[in-house]
Amino acid sequence: MASPNGSPSPGGEDRTEQEPQQSEHLNIKVTDNNNEVFFKIKRTTQLKKLMDAFCERQGKAPQQCRFLFDGQRVNPPDTPETLDMNDGDVLEVHQEQIGGSC
């Protein structure tokens, strides 16, 4: 790697060996049947905040929404880091149902 003035920078070889670091923020799409909302979130931020923001924005009760990522339930303390999420991943929101009989 070269510095802006063209001269090789000290320790440049070490930096080239490093893997490209993942960005600190992620863009996550949250979708239900009708709506799509895009969120920008840090990898270490709990997804509870995102869930609350989505529910508040869509006027839904948190007790009525199930958030799924890759078919698996997303718990409020989870973070994008623990779920190994990538930029552009999608969270599905399913409505909580009740059943007895008809």
Binding site: K40, T45, A53, P62
Partner: peptide
């Protein structure tokens, strides 16, 4: 529209609210 989650204020978290379902 992209909503920046980290810029939103923290909401008070109750123990019961962590498992609303």
């Amino acid at each position: 529209e992209v909503i920046d989650i980290d810029s939103l204020p923290d909401s008070p978290s109750a123990r019961i609210a962590t498992e609303p379902l």
